[in-house]
Simulated scan of single mutants.
Amino acid sequence: MASLTVAHRGTNHAISVNAETDTIASVKQALEALTGVPVANQKLLHKSIRPNTNLDASTLTQVFGQTLPTEKILMVGSLPSDVSVIQRKDAVLDIRKARERTPTQPHPESSIKRAYTFGTVQPLPQFPDANKAKTLLIRLREDIGVIEVMRKHQWFVGTLTELHPAEKEILGFNRNMGAEISLRIRTDDLAGFRHYRTVVSVLMHELVHMVHSDHDDKFHALNRVLNKEYDEFSVGRSIGTDGRVDGSQAFSVEGEEEEGSLARYGYQGGSFLLGGSGAQATDDAAKREAMLAAAENRRLKKWEQDLVDACDGSKHSGTDGTHEPQ
């Protein structure tokens, strides 16, 4: 007997399997018993599992080869309770939308052809304000900062999609290093959309997974570089208002400070003399600057940890799933 490790909502589940006889369907049945997520609601993400294909009848050997993967497989799926809650909220929102019934012009697709961009954008059509969700995804694609970051690093992503809001812990994932990047753009109550700069931060995180699978020092270094580049490319350029697409109050990650983005990502420079003169003043300034740098470094590490904490797919190149900061 062999073992597969499947991660779901921050918990790893070890499943004993016979690679020659067990199928993807039997793995899903075992996962339903462990997690309560019905087989019909399950989606397994791994570099060996081709998207949009039904492999339920295939044995594990047929899918993974003679050697089963040692890294974790990510399972995305909603519990029946999640689905019922969303269905109730959908009904309420549908009533409100029927009352208002204000036509909204969809955002026009860009006709600009670029080598390094997102091929398509896909909102969730079953949710209210799907046109606004599409507008937000297009805004991300056409953001000058995002355009220049992807151009500089020569990255092309097949599809930018909206992540289902039932996955409350997951903020986003990058499947197969650029086949698809999915971002959770709606608030938990489904009443609006998340703070734009927060969504951009998650997007930068997922773009780092174009190169690095693990959240190691190289990952964090590139993540800081991308955020700095985004800020530099965006300075003085019009990318729209910094808030929700619908104009309501912006959502912020708990603990996020509404200050300059350079400070948020730990960039520092310059010296500060806070009074006094001579060697003592210089020493005091140096100590204070060191204390500020240490505090900034702690905040930076917390911000990064908030994005990578319990990242299900962080151990392999197939899929990364970024989880909601606790």
Results as ranks from 00 to 15, higher is better:
residue 61 T to W: 03
residue 177 M to I: 06
residue 123 P to N: 06
residue 56 D to Y: 03
residue 81 S to K: 13
residue 120 T to E: 15
residue 132 K to R: 14
residue 121 V to I: 08
residue 73 I to A: 00
residue 161 T to Y: 06
residue 164 H to Y: 07
residue 144 I to M: 11
residue 198 T to F: 14
residue 90 D to Q: 09
residue 120 T to P: 03
residue 70 T to H: 12
residue 142 E to W: 06
residue 153 H to S: 12
residue 178 G to E: 06
residue 78 S to Y: 04
residue 91 A to F: 02
residue 87 Q to C: 09
residue 98 A to K: 08
residue 144 I to Y: 12
residue 131 N to E: 10
residue 110 S to I: 07
residue 84 S to L: 04
residue 98 A to G: 12
residue 155 W to C: 11
residue 154 Q to G: 07
residue 62 Q to V: 07
residue 171 L to I: 11
residue 124 L to C: 04
residue 156 F to L: 12
residue 156 F to K: 14
residue 165 P to L: 04
residue 130 A to F: 00
residue 193 F to K: 04
residue 151 R to Y: 05
residue 81 S to T: 13
residue 105 Q to C: 05
residue 106 P to D: 11
residue 107 H to K: 06
residue 98 A to M: 05
residue 180 E to A: 11
residue 136 L to S: 05
residue 114 R to G: 04
residue 61 T to V: 10
residue 125 P to T: 14
residue 86 I to D: 03
residue 143 D to Y: 09
residue 112 I to T: 08
residue 113 K to F: 10
residue 86 I to P: 01
residue 182 S to A: 15
residue 54 N to K: 09
residue 110 S to Y: 06
residue 143 D to E: 11
residue 177 M to S: 08
residue 191 A to R: 13
residue 112 I to R: 07
residue 54 N to P: 03
residue 141 R to W: 12
residue 80 P to F: 00
residue 134 K to N: 13
residue 137 L to C: 12
residue 102 T to W: 10
residue 148 E to H: 15
residue 164 H to V: 02
residue 161 T to M: 12
residue 73 I to Y: 00
residue 166 A to L: 04
residue 113 K to H: 12
residue 101 R to E: 05
residue 55 L to V: 12
residue 89 K to R: 13
residue 150 M to D: 01
residue 128 P to H: 09
residue 101 R to C: 03
residue 123 P to G: 05
residue 100 E to V: 13
residue 180 E to T: 15
residue 76 V to G: 06
residue 185 I to Y: 04
residue 107 H to E: 08
residue 121 V to L: 05
residue 172 G to T: 04
residue 55 L to R: 07
residue 108 P to M: 00
residue 190 L to M: 14
residue 92 V to W: 08
residue 149 V to L: 06
residue 71 E to Q: 07
residue 158 G to P: 02
residue 168 K to M: 08
residue 95 I to G: 02
residue 184 R to I: 03
residue 163 L to N: 01
residue 153 H to V: 10
residue 113 K to W: 10
residue 113 K to M: 11
residue 178 G to T: 03
residue 93 L to V: 06
residue 129 D to R: 07
residue 165 P to I: 01
residue 96 R to A: 11
residue 151 R to C: 06
residue 71 E to I: 00
residue 179 A to W: 12
residue 196 Y to D: 04
residue 100 E to S: 11
residue 130 A to Y: 00
residue 169 E to D: 15
residue 77 G to D: 01
residue 114 R to Y: 08
residue 192 G to K: 04
residue 113 K to A: 14
residue 160 L to H: 02
residue 169 E to Q: 15
residue 152 K to A: 15
residue 193 F to D: 03
residue 86 I to Y: 04
residue 125 P to L: 08
residue 83 V to R: 14
residue 161 T to R: 12
residue 189 D to F: 00
residue 120 T to Y: 15
residue 179 A to G: 09
residue 173 F to T: 02
residue 90 D to A: 00
residue 159 T to Y: 09
residue 180 E to N: 13
residue 191 A to E: 15
residue 60 L to W: 02
residue 106 P to S: 11
residue 126 Q to G: 07
residue 69 P to A: 02
residue 99 R to P: 00
residue 76 V to Q: 09
residue 166 A to D: 04
residue 103 P to I: 00
residue 133 A to C: 11
residue 140 L to W: 11
residue 60 L to M: 07
residue 165 P to S: 08
residue 74 L to F: 08
residue 85 V to W: 01
residue 84 S to N: 09
residue 80 P to E: 02
residue 135 T to H: 10
residue 161 T to N: 14
residue 84 S to C: 05
residue 175 R to H: 10
residue 200 V to W: 13
residue 182 S to M: 06
residue 66 Q to P: 10
residue 61 T to G: 02
residue 129 D to S: 10
